[in-house]
């Protein structure tokens, strides 16, 4: 069995669950805060026969939008933590001051290698992009506020760019450029 595949698979379980849980939690939160009259209905004209419904379209869009915000926020936080680990807690780029601080706060376990972070980062980015695509598709159908789609695209692009930068940095430590080798 491929080690990389196993790593990616085990890394995908948590964000997959988080995506569903954050969507449900977001819906519960919006319904509670705005006191929306939701109910479960059987519908025959959709792919899925059991649907959560609201008496008016505005309530449905409100709930859908903020529950998507919750999904994107949860995935952004997860990706953000991994990016933070990539840039600041990577063993390859560690400086002694940071290590001492980590020991002081008992956060030494947060130190990680690129080989363990990057498969996770790729998976989290994939989920972030999936969520963004869903939001964008629904924004085009006027089922979600458009600003959420724009925010999702900006966040996903930024996270992808930062990941690429982190990956480049990692690669450069493993395979130094010719100039660097000469300098050494």
């Amino acid at each position: 069995m491929s080690k990389l595949l196993r790593k990616i698979l085990s890394a995908a379980v948590f964000p997959a669950a988080l995506m569903i849980v954050s969507k449900i939690a977001g819906m519960i939160l919006v319904n509670t805060v705005y006191d929306l009259p939701w109910r479960i209905e059987m519908m025959t004209d959709t792919w899925f026969s059991i649907q959560i419904t609201y008496p008016d379209q505005a309530s449905a869009i409100l709930c859908n939008s903020y529950s998507h915000v919750s999904v994107i926020l949860a995935l952004t936080i997860g990706t953000g933590i991994l990016l933070f680990q990539t840039f600041f807690l990577n063993v390859h780029f560690q400086n002694p001051k940071v290590i001492i601080r980590l020991i002081q706060f008992d956060f030494l376990l947060w130190l990680s290698e690129g080989s363990t972070i990057f498969p996770k980062l790729v998976v989290w980015l994939a989920f972030l992009w999936i969520a963004t695509l869903i939001v964008t598709a629904q924004a085009l159908q006027s089922l979600v506020y458009p600003w959420i789609s724009i925010a999702g695209i900006v966040i996903s692009t930024l996270a992808t760019w930062l990941s690429a930068r982190g990956f480049e940095r990692e690669i450069s430590t493993l395979l130094p450029e010719h100039d660097t080798l000469r300098a050494v």
Partner: peptide, 17 residues
């Protein structure tokens, strides 16, 4: 694993009654 959450999120899209 990528497909199931996406479908679930789509399924949880609220609609007008």
């Amino acid at each position: 694993l990528l497909f199931i959450p996406a479908v679930t999120v789509l399924n949880l899209t609220p609609r007008r009654s």
